[in-house]
Design a protein around this nucleic acid. Structure first.
Lengths: 233, 233
DNA sequence: GCAAGCAAAGTCATCAGATGACTCACGGCC
DNA sequence: GGCCGTGAGTCATCTGATGACTTTGCTTGC
């Protein structure tokens, strides 16, 4: 076993067995090097691996801390790499989204509160009011995130969040056909939110599935290639 | 932006834009250091991060290669960290599994071929024939993997594979009640495989969902803590 | 007594150099 | 023609040194 592997599995084991708890600061590099029997360089590579996977978080000048180990911490690590998949992968992701969005919509319909319904319709109105495609996309994301939150499964919510981020890269609303697509999308949102407000899981699931399928059809039809994405260079 | 971040995003960008294609060998460390303007140490940390995420793969003495960028390459990176989540996270994973296993079962019922049916029943018989809980667990895994494969969505198949691995860590079959649980599990498998063979998506989805829910109930009931897992030290 | 600012220790970040280990292809040798 | 050694290329690891950042605690001035 290589030195980096030794350090990686050693650290992971410390966390798995509870010796290092969530949120806790891990020993400084020097101590860990001695305990694990590797050099600082190898240890740092192992630390970076776990950091990329959302398990630990180094803070310059302070120390390295175990993350909260919430589902979104670990699942969020996919967001940086899922968009590297080729397009066939994206279409497969849409199939998963159809199923899961339908499920969370049904769950949300069964569990939603009046306040949650208020939030949903507020987001819809904000979406309909704006002309900025970027802002609309952001509000769309928050709308679906809110439904997933109401659904009551944080792991599922973060998984869908990652999948949506992959889809959102394609910015379908900025196309010439954008306004028309947005109008249809806004309609879908109202149908979905109404079904949730009515506590009608079947209608909500159907509306969610149809909405995802619609987006997927647009994407198949226009298929704009994604090239650059470093908006925050 | 830190040196490691610069190297990480630089490499990721090269892959995202197609400058480095799937399976291709990336330039040696020295060249990349010069191009990205970082030291070898920082570059290596970035390489390790991408390797942990399943995007690239260093081979000692040969070079560093971009992975095939298949869905399982990227999604498989979750398998090392998902088991670090606390138990509440595991139960949330089961909810996702219920939905997705039901979906793939339905898809498999719609798409399955006679050969695939033969494979399924062969696995079932092997499962029923063995007394070794570990081997039974392995065959169980292959059985569900085969259904997911028939379902036709590799991304979904690898996602479910990761989720099942998390559940399998709990080794429910090694409990005193193991034999009885296995008998019930084998029954479930026959019902599921029969529904798929009959091209009955509704029955298949129901059987799959019931099977996952059953496993989940056992886990809630017995809840054996997971401590160690370094079988391959 | 208190608050602002400063100083020092602790920690991670980065770089540079050197050596070892492994892979692979080329060419000589049998 | 096949086998084997050899050397170039590449990644793996260690060591040492320096810089940057955070945190803490103390000093200083009011």
């Amino acid at each position: 076993m290589s030195a980096v592997d030794k350090a990686f599995h050693g650290l992971r084991h410390m966390i798995a067995t509870g010796r290092l708890g969530a949120g806790e600061r891990i020993p400084p590099e020097g101590e860990l090097c001695e305990e694990l029997g590797v050099s600082r360089g190898s240890l740092r590579e192992a630390v970076r691996m776990l950091a990329a996977l959302g398990v630990i978080e180094p803070r310059h000048g302070s120390g390295t801390y175990v993350s909260q180990l919430r589902p979104e911490d670990v699942i969020g690590s996919l967001s940086l790499t899922l968009e590297l998949l080729p397009l066939t992968g994206l279409l497969e992701v849409y199939e998963i989204r159809r199923v899961l969005e339908a499920h969370v919509a049904a769950q949300a319909a069964a569990r939603c509160t009046p306040e949650a319904v208020g939030t949903l319709f507020a987001l819809i109105e904000a979406m309909e009011a704006t002309d900025d495609p970027t802002k609309a996309s952001e509000l769309d994301h928050r709308f679906h995130l809110e439904i997933a939150r109401i659904g009551g499964n944080p792991t599922l919510a973060s998984l869908l969040s990652v999948f949506r981020a992959r889809s959102r890269k394609y910015q379908v609303f900025t196309l010439p056909e954008g306004p028309e697509l947005r109008r249809k999308s806004d309609e879908d949102h109202r149908v979905l939110a109404t079904a949730i407000a009515d506590h009608d899981p079947v209608a909500a699931a159907g509306a969610a599935q149809a909405h995802v399928a619609q987006t997927e059809r647009w994407l198949r039809a226009f298929m704009p290639p994604v090239e650059e994405d470093d908006s925050k260079g």
